[in-house]
Design a protein around this nucleic acid. Structure first.
Length: 192
DNA sequence: AATTCCCGCAACCGCTTTCAT
DNA sequence: AATGAAAGCGGTTGCGGGAAT
């Protein structure tokens, strides 16, 4: 745990991972008093944390309606779709996924999806190097945020319906089969 | 068994936007 | 309208744990 002295009054601001005790203090305080001005809240609750830190901890992990882990296939598709529309507007994307936070979606994108996209790029690159390569017809599925990120505000329909405008079924299949991890997801999406 | 490498994620940092005065 | 404080946001970092060697 890192402590930072912020002034001559020897007040130390705690940084780094939250302890269970700190979590309890924050939860109890907000349960009784509700959310408020975060800097004041941090002081009033007796937490030697910045308001920013308290806000982040509450919104991303402690708030009762936060859902964590196990991104569903539907959520995966929605994240893909919305990122294609809006780019890295994580908080905006998160608002379309009840219970999910911008931080979680951002991490999910960077650690899972972005990695797959890089692999897809490599495969496409290789296929372009071989002129008559019919077996690697993923070019339509090659997801490029630079070409897809300029969509205007979406008229959000069902995931499947609006996805069709951006990814046809064939291209989605090509994208997801890059990694066997995602096969169950696509199977359930396709209903088999 | 020990060490190194890699990956996922929680949390921080800095910038921008919003709000109150 | 100007200004400062707080909140919001996206990018990045660093730690912990598991996999690989």
């Amino acid at each position: 745990m890192l402590n930072t002295r912020i002034n001559h009054q020897e007040i130390e601001v705690r940084k780094g991972p939250w302890t269970m005790e700190e979590d309890h203090v924050l939860i109890n305080y907000i349960t009784v008093h509700g959310e408020g001005v975060w800097n004041s809240l941090a002081r009033a609750a007796g937490l030697n944390r910045t308001g920013k830190s308290c806000r982040l901890r509450w919104l991303n992990y402690l708030k009762p309606d936060v859902r964590r882990g196990n991104i569903t296939p539907e959520e995966q598709m929605l994240i893909l779709e919305l990122h294609a529309r809006w780019g890295n507007r994580w908080s905006k994307i998160a608002r379309q996924l009840p219970g999910r936070t911008d931080n979680e979606i951002k991490n999910y994108w960077r650690t899972r999806i972005q990695k797959k996209l890089k692999q897809t790029d490599m495969i496409q690159y290789k296929s372009e190097m071989v002129p008559d390569n019919n077996s690697m017809s993923i070019s339509q599925g090659n997801y490029s945020s630079s070409t897809l990120s300029d969509y205007s505000e979406p008229n959000l329909t069902t995931s499947q319906g609006s996805c069709g405008a951006l990814f046809n079924t064939e291209s989605i299949d090509s994208f997801w089969t890059i990694d066997a991890d995602f096969e169950p997801s696509m199977q359930s999406l396709h209903g088999h």
